[in-house]
Amino acid sequence: MRRFAIIIGLLGAISLPAGLWLTAPTRISEDVFAALTGDAIAGETVFHAAGCAACHAAPGAEGEARLILSGGQRFVTDFGTFLAPNVSPHPTAGIGAWTMQDFANATQRGVSPDGAHYYPVFPYAAYTLADPQDIADLWAYWQSLPPSDAASASHDLGFPFAIRRGLGLWKALYMPNAFSPAIEGDSEVLRGQYLVQALGHCAECHTPRDALGGLDRDRWLAGAPNPSGKGTIPALTPDRMTWSAQEIAAYLTDGFTPDYDSTGGSMVEVIANTAQLAETDRAAIAAYLKALPSPKSAQP
C-alpha cells in the first residue's frame, strides 16, 4: 500500500504541472498590435458585423439604446446559464480601463486581463480568425460608445463547468487556426466567408455541436437544436436553403423572407446588425452561403 501511495503521489506530481501547462491561457504577441492604429469609422462596420450589441445590450434594448453595452442578457445552455457582462467603456463597471492589447486577448484568445479563461459562449473561437486591423478598428469605435455603470452578474454554473482553468483544454481542442471547411471562390465569396466565420459567427447557432460544446465542422451550417430547447435552428447550406443569393441579401436587409414572412426570435437581433452593413457585404454573405458544399450528414 505504501508503494502504491508513492506511485500515485508521483503520478500526481507529474500530471499536475502537465495539466497546468496544458490549460494555461495563451495571449497574442504584443508585436501584432503595437504598430496598429484603429479607425473608429471602420470599426463601426466591424461592430455590426460581429453582432456585439446583440449579446451585450440590455434585454429589450432598441435603437440607440443598443449601443449601451451594459449586459444582462441570459443565455441558457446545457452547461449552465451565462449572463452577458457590462462591456461598455465605463472605467470600473465596464472595460474602459482596458488597453487595446487586453481587448485583443479577450476577443481573439478568450483571456481576461488578469489571465482567466472566458467561456466560449463569448465567440472568441470565431473572432480568433479576424484580421488584427479589424480588432484595432473595433476597439477605436468602442471608445465612442456610451458608458454604463450597471454591475455585471455572475454566471450560474455547476461543477465542473464553474472551473475556468479546464477551458484551456477546450481551446486546445476547438480553437481554429484557419477557415474551415475549406472553400474556393472569388473575392466576394471569400469576403462572405470572412464575415460569416470570423465576424458574424453564424456557425455558433447554425452548426451542431458535440458533447463538449465544440462545433461539428463536418456538418458546417447544417442546422442545429435551438439552444433555448424549442425547435431547431435552420440549415444554411445550399441543399437546404433554397433561396437565391438576391433573396438572402434582401432578407439580411429587412428581415422579410421571399414569401413575405417576417423574421422572429434571435434573428431579429441579427437582422438589426446585418441591415447596418454595406450592400456589398450582404451580397458577399449570400454568395458564400450559396458556394458552401453540402454537409457530410443531414441536420440532426
Results as ranks from 00 to 15, higher is better:
G265D: 10
P295F: 09
Y127R: 12
T45V: 13
A211T: 09
G110M: 04
Q133P: 09
P25D: 05
T107F: 11
T92E: 10
G43V: 01
G9V: 11
Q108H: 06
S144F: 00
I95K: 08
T26L: 11
P176W: 09
D239E: 12
P293T: 01
S244T: 15
F122A: 09
G12T: 12
G19A: 11
P295H: 10
A284T: 07
T253L: 13
G223V: 07
M100A: 11
G94W: 06
D210Q: 07
H206Q: 08
A24F: 03
A54H: 04
G192R: 01
C205D: 01
A224H: 03
A272R: 14
C205M: 04
L16W: 09
Q73V: 13
I28G: 03
A198K: 01
G63N: 09
A284E: 02
A40L: 03
E64K: 15
R66S: 14
G115W: 01
L173D: 09
D254E: 02
S294V: 13
Y194I: 05
D114S: 15
R217P: 00
E64H: 11
S70T: 11
L236V: 06
S152F: 03
P146Y: 06
S244K: 09
E204S: 15
G231F: 07
I7Q: 01
G168H: 01
I95P: 05
P300S: 06
K171M: 10
S154F: 03
A245P: 08
D134I: 00
L67S: 08
L16H: 04
G80V: 08
P113Y: 08
L195E: 00
L20A: 13
G115D: 03
I285W: 05
I28T: 13
G185D: 03
F4T: 06
P293Y: 00
G223R: 08
I8N: 07
R165G: 11
R74C: 06
D254K: 11
A272M: 08
I7V: 15
L292V: 09
V111D: 04
A182L: 12
A40H: 04
G63F: 08
P123V: 09
T99W: 01
A61H: 04
F82N: 02
Y119P: 03
T99A: 05
T237P: 10
Q299N: 12
G229A: 03
M267E: 07
A126G: 12
V196I: 12
H117G: 02
I68N: 09
F4C: 05
Q108T: 15
V121G: 12
T92W: 01
Q299R: 13
Y260S: 13
L83G: 09
G115A: 09
G63W: 06
D39N: 15
T128S: 14
K290C: 11
N273K: 04
E64D: 14
S228Y: 02
T45N: 12
G200L: 02
G19P: 02
I6C: 08
A57S: 15
A250S: 14
D149T: 07
A5W: 12
K296C: 00
A172W: 12
G255V: 02
V268R: 15
G166L: 15
F179Y: 15
V32D: 00
G214R: 08
A249P: 04
I271S: 07
I233D: 09
Y260A: 13
R164W: 05
I233R: 13
C52P: 01
S266F: 10
Q143R: 13
P238C: 08
R240W: 03
I183H: 07
D137H: 10
T237H: 12
H155T: 04
W139P: 03
T207M: 06
